[in-house]
């Protein structure tokens, strides 16, 4: 053993453990979704002013919601699994809402990332869950650039499922009254989701 040994060992340990701590946000997260959840919670961020079109053909942007918190999920209408569960969650949320003023102030928005989802498809998906604009819009980005901006800004990753469909994040995104993405919630039991959303969106 030389005097260099403790120096080299301390060097390797500090660099190695420091890098691991950095990558895991202090040993709290191991997934990219978890890291993003944490960073949004710490520092809410603005959302893009991308052009969207809802199931009635009405154009709008996220800026139009300013002053009203909105819960957003990302879907595609042909989706047989996650999106159906997300749709059920939002439908149940709709029922739970309307009680208090805080609940009534929250809007829902389902954004399709599938370029083949036309207005008829959006309307059909909305009808399945009883969604009515403007309180619950089923919308698609107006063009490819708006879609890319939305997915990038919300951190939604869409990959092919190998069967002609897609696999994607199933989180619920809370944009607060100031128009900032303030929280990313795990899609969960609707009552718990609502409680969390009310707390974040309309404190």
């Amino acid at each position: 053993m030389t005097r260099g040994f403790p120096v080299l060992l301390a060097f390797v340990l500090s660099i190695g453990i420091g890098t691991l701590a950095f990558e895991t946000d202090g040993f709290r997260v191991v997934t990219s979704a978890g890291a993003r959840q944490l960073s949004i919670e710490r520092a809410p961020q603005g959302v893009p002013d991308a052009q969207l079109v809802d199931q009635d053909g009405t154009p709008f942007t996220l800026a139009d919601y300013k002053g009203r918190p909105v819960l957003i999920d990302f879907i595609y209408t042909r989706c047989p699994t996650i999106c159906t569960a997300l749709g059920d969650d939002f439908a149940r949320l709709r029922q739970l809402m309307g009680g208090t003023r805080a609940h009534a102030a929250i809007d829902l928005l389902s954004i399709s990332f599938d370029p083949t989802d036309n207005r008829a498809a959006l309307r059909l998906y909305g009808d399945r869950f009883g969604a009515k604009a403007p309180r619950w819009r089923i919308a698609a980005a107006a063009d490819q650039r708006a879609r890319a901006a939305l997915l990038h800004s919300f951190g939604v990753v869409v990959i092919p499922d190998g069967l002609g469909g897609f696999i994607h994040n199933d989180a619920v995104y809370v944009v607060d009254a100031q128009g900032r993405l303030a929280r990313i919630l795990d899609s969960d039991a609707p009552d718990r989701l609502l409680a969390a959303a009310v707390q974040v969106a309309a404190p």
Binding site: T19, L20, E23, T24, V29, V30, T31, G34
Partner: peptide
């Protein structure tokens, strides 16, 4: 430590 890092799903 290096192999642990590249086993993190985030990495």
């Amino acid at each position: 430590l290096g192999t642990s890092f590249w086993m993190l799903p985030r990495a």
